[in-house]
Design a protein around this nucleic acid. Structure first.
Length: 273
DNA sequence: TACCAGGTTAGCG
DNA sequence: CGCTAACATGGT
């Protein structure tokens, strides 16, 4: 089926460092795994907002439309940026327009961003991919290739973290402990979803291996607290270089996490100093 | 080949 | 408190 979607760019979202398992088939064409399902999304061309989707209307409404956060109006945020006098942010928005904050599975986000600490995006993707394949909690075949589901915690044998070939490195014990904790506390994920930002942040940082930055990523990408503003090495250097007198968090209250994504994306791919 | 990566922790002063 | 070495390991 086809849909016309504003403020949506699959290429940019795939590169925006919030999801680690999209697979590129062609320019603008991706295999998107989420919630045990797989979608192939492909835009008609660079100048159209029309995309081809491999799903039916039922899956679109129930799964993919919410996953892509299509009920949020990003044009309002764009206007807020364009009417500011922040030239660096305006540039970042110019190249980042089309990025959305996906509404991903919370468990997958917690696990993935625990892997992400002191790690690079390519390596994060590779080790998570290997992990999913090794656990094998089901897969979908697309054009002859298998795309494995991200395993729920019940499907994960903690002994898998003793396998060094997965490349989790020193994070493996953290992941093992996390799996055991979530198994022993089956309501933990639901309580996180119901909690407000501050409560969720505190519940997350209590876990070993989750510090301030990872907790904020989980709040933003796993719980959709769009005011959460993760500070990684890139964002810290942006704040130092472009905002020595401080960033205007007040102006972007409620959406600073989305602003953060534009700044991050711009720094990663365009602002090569 | 060194350096770096969407950081966190524990152990210092 | 704040500061920082150590932490695995593959990509570039």
């Amino acid at each position: 089926m086809k849909r016309v979607i504003e403020d949506f760019d699959s290429e940019k979202i795939a590169l925006s460092g919030q999801c680690f398992r999209w697979k590129k088939l062609d320019y603008g064409k991706f295999v998107v795994p989420a919630f045990g399902k797989v979608l192939v999304i492909n835009r008609e061309n660079d100048y159209s907002h029309e995309v081809n989707l491999s799903c039916d209307m039922k899956d679109w409404i129930n799964t993919w439309k919410p996953y892509f956060d299509l009920d949020t109006d990003y044009s309002r945020i764009g206007e807020l940026i364009e009417s500011s006098n922040d030239e660096h942010l305006k540039n970042a928005y110019l190249v980042g327009k089309g990025i959305r904050i996906l509404r991903q599975d919370l468990w997958e986000v917690i696990f993935s961003f625990m892997v992400s600490q002191n790690n690079n995006i390519t390596r994060i993707s590779n080790s998570i991919e290997q992990f999913c394949e090794k656990v094998n909690a089901g897969f979908v075949e697309v054009e002859g290739k298998k795309y494995y589901a991200f395993p729920s915690v019940e499907k994960i044998d903690p002994a898998i973290f003793d396998d060094k070939s997965l490349g989790f490195g020193y994070r493996a014990p953290y992941l093992k402990e996390l799996c055991e904790y979530v198994s022993d506390n089956p309501d933990y994920l639901d309580r996180l979803k119901e909690a407000d930002y501050e409560t969720a942040y505190n519940m997350l940082t209590e876990r070993k291996g989750i510090g301030a930055k990872v907790a904020n990523c989980i709040c933003l990408f796993g719980l959709h607290h769009t005011d959460s503003f993760p500070k990684d090495t890139h964002i810290n250097s942006i704040l130092d270089n472009y905002y020595p007198d401080g960033f205007d968090f007040e102006r972007y209250e409620g959406v600073s996490g989305i602003i953060q994504q534009y700044l991050f994306f711009y720094d990663l791919y365009y602002d090569n100093k």
